[in-house]
């Protein structure tokens, strides 16, 4: 068995032993090892992925919460300002209304007074006219030759009117 000439026996045994070793190790060692390594790799990857996803979800949730909060805050402000606006406007309106109403009442009252006054005046005028006509009639009907009788008559008339 020289250094550079491969021995046939050794070739035979090497083929046999290495072949057997390869077959046995492939089936009972490398296969389960690589398979579980792969599974572990996948497991780690999945875990990392899900952790990342959870984190993202958490951030999303936080963002959503914040958004909701800020929306609520905005809503509150909006409602508040609207209410304020509404209340001021209502006040103004009420004031205006009151004023208008007052004005209207006053003007109505004035109108009524005016018309009442006019009516009264008209009545007075009518009455005066009627009285004058009556007086004139009576004067015309009676003999008004004497001064005393005239005077007495007027006095009677006045008395009559007074009644």
């Amino acid at each position: 068995m020289d250094l550079l000439t491969p021995g046939t026996g050794l070739i035979f045994w090497q083929l046999l032993i290495f072949g057997t070793l390869f077959v046995v190790l492939s089936k009972y060692a490398w296969k389960p090892i690589t398979q579980s390594l792969k599974e572990r790799e996948k497991f780690i990857e999945d875990s990392l992925d899900s952790a990342k996803r959870a984190e993202e979800e958490l951030i999303n949730l936080q963002n959503k919460n914040e958004q909701l909060l800020s929306e609520a805050r905005k809503e509150r402000e909006k409602i508040l300002s609207e209410a304020k606006k509404l209340s001021t406007s209502m006040k103004e309106e009420a004031k205006d209304n009151a004023k208008e109403m007052a004005d209207k009442i006053i003007s109505d009252a004035k109108k009524v007074i005016e018309s009442e006054k006019n009516n009264a005046m008209n009545d007075v005028k009518n009455t005066v006219a009627e009285l004058s006509i009556d007086i004139a009639e009576m004067v015309i009907k009676k003999d008004l030759s004497k001064d005393s009788s005239q005077k007495k008559y007027v006095e009677d008339l006045i008395k009559e009117i007074k009644d």
């Binding site: 068995m1 021995g7 032993i17 009972y28 090892i33």
Partner: peptide
């Protein structure tokens, strides 16, 4: 000549050692 020479003997030792070690390693998985 198919004799179990010194190298064939060590071939067996190497193979046996590998079998023991890696079957043991595999069993841990």
């Amino acid at each position: 000549d198919l004799s179990i020479t010194k190298n064939v003997f060590f071939l067996f030792i190497t193979a046996a050692l590998m079998l023991v070690i890696f079957l043991l390693v595999a069993s841990k998985y």
